[in-house]
Design a protein around this nucleic acid. Sequence first.
RNA 1: GGUCUGUUCAUCUAAGGGUUAGGAUUCAAGAUUUUCAUUCUUGCCAUAGGGGUUCGAAUCCCCUACAGACUACCA
Length: 512
Amino acid sequence: MENNAKPRVRFAPSPTGPLHIGGLRTALFNYLFAKHHGGDFLLRIEDTDQTRYVPGAEEYILEALDWCGIKIDEGPREGGTHAPYRQSERKALYAGYAQQLIDSGNAYYAFDTNEELDAFRLSAELKGETFTYNNATRNGLKNSLSMTDSQLQHALQSDSHHVVRFKMPENVVVEEVDLIRGHVQFNTNQLDDKVLFKSDGMPTYHLANVVDDHLMEITHVIRGEEWLPSMPLHILLYKAFGWKDTMPQFSHLPLILKPVGKGKLSKRDGDQMGFPVFPLAWKDPETGDISRGYREDGYLPDGLINMLSLLGWNPGTEQEIFSMEQLIESFSLDRVGKSGSRFDPEKTKWFNHQYLIKHSDQELATLFLPFLESKGMQVPFELVVRVCGLVKERCHFVNEVWEQGFFFFQSPTSYDEKMVSKRWKDGVPEMMAEIAEFFGTVENWSAPQIKEPFSLLVTEKGWNFGTVMNSLRLCLVGGSFGPDIFEICEIIGREETVARIGRAVRIIAVVG
RNA sequence: GGUCUGUUCAUCUAAGGGUUAGGAUUCAAGAUUUUCAUUCUUGCCAUAGGGGUUCGAAUCCCCUACAGACUACCA
């Protein structure tokens, strides 16, 4: 840090829908940076576009950050010394700042209608050019720079819809050091006179963002790369307001790209390839469409965060598993890369497995219980704990406990065809019946107590171990998977074990 | 089209002029598990291309190619 002050950073999403994992990573990096330097992380809701407001989106953002363990120091829910934290509630503030820019000659009124501007864009496009509202064109357009005073007064009073545009200076080179990208520069001739204040009385992103970052004493702006092109405008705004001295430092994060193909990661990719792009499931209030979420798909927040942290950042060591505390400890902006990273759903899976086996059996059982309940099953907690301990090594997701261990809670409903044709041959049903009989004679019903005499029996009868074990497994779980067979016997109990064998013998047809 | 940004194994990445270019994921093979998964071992695989600068370049410079972002009264 150049200054000694504790950094203040903000995550400033628009409540236009669920938070995307790209946005989540931006929030994460802001949070890690702030906490690493002992600073504050603020949440500001940028809801200046009323037409795009989606109910529930703000609550979603809060819930997602909570789930991920990203703690907000100041925000609409938490409050703080710089409230309010919703731009819609700060509406009254912005007009004065727009006026300030007009008075200082840095901005002007513009009266062009959308239709007029569209026409200009269209005709420029036909000539293979791009229409830009700037120093070269603004004198030929309807604005306070091209009008006489009386025309202006008339236009202002006749209630015509107007906007305020920034007066982009001519041929000025704007230079700045981006903490991630280094020195970057732009020539203002390539930029346009952006609208700062809309005809509906709301500021645009650019004005609101700069004003609020200044007022909220933000020291570092860490945002996605898509904002890099508007950095010169923002810098010029700070200058125009006379806030250059306290201007925040900028960092533009590389984007998260599609796993395959071109472009940045989108909701569509997740739908097509079968992985979530949102931390939490989301139901679109208009269409009713449901998008899956990491939480509902059985991912653990620590794993998601860990995976996200390594997308575009690395610690410079070979460590890969990081708790949030360790991330805070190791994070630094100068180890953030410049190029976009492809999202890899496979690696996300691997991370999740790492965290799944780290969790205690009790914790995992607690997470799995709601899933069991959603299936209408009432299972003693102790049993769930035991099952989790037995199957967690073979799971990638919390939900997978069911796939890997459903047979602890209910009889198999079908038998794997491949296993049947491979194992269920002549003589096997009889063999199973003898085993069922034998189980009835076992004294102490526990895995080790069953195993020993069972092995003796198999040897005595001269049976093939592979056939016996696999056929028995088929009877008990319905296929060729699951933990130790005697553990299964112990847990489901003698009665159920015998019953399952009987049922299999009755149902499965012997194959040639 | 214009502006800006970027380019190391299939993927995430390390190597701040000198290493057989390292690790992780995926994939493949073997071992373990009388099942499946896990785990372990081994293997495959990269400096976009072309010019410079230098004793020496993944690293510095230039060109080309490719990729991405932006180009709204959206953020």
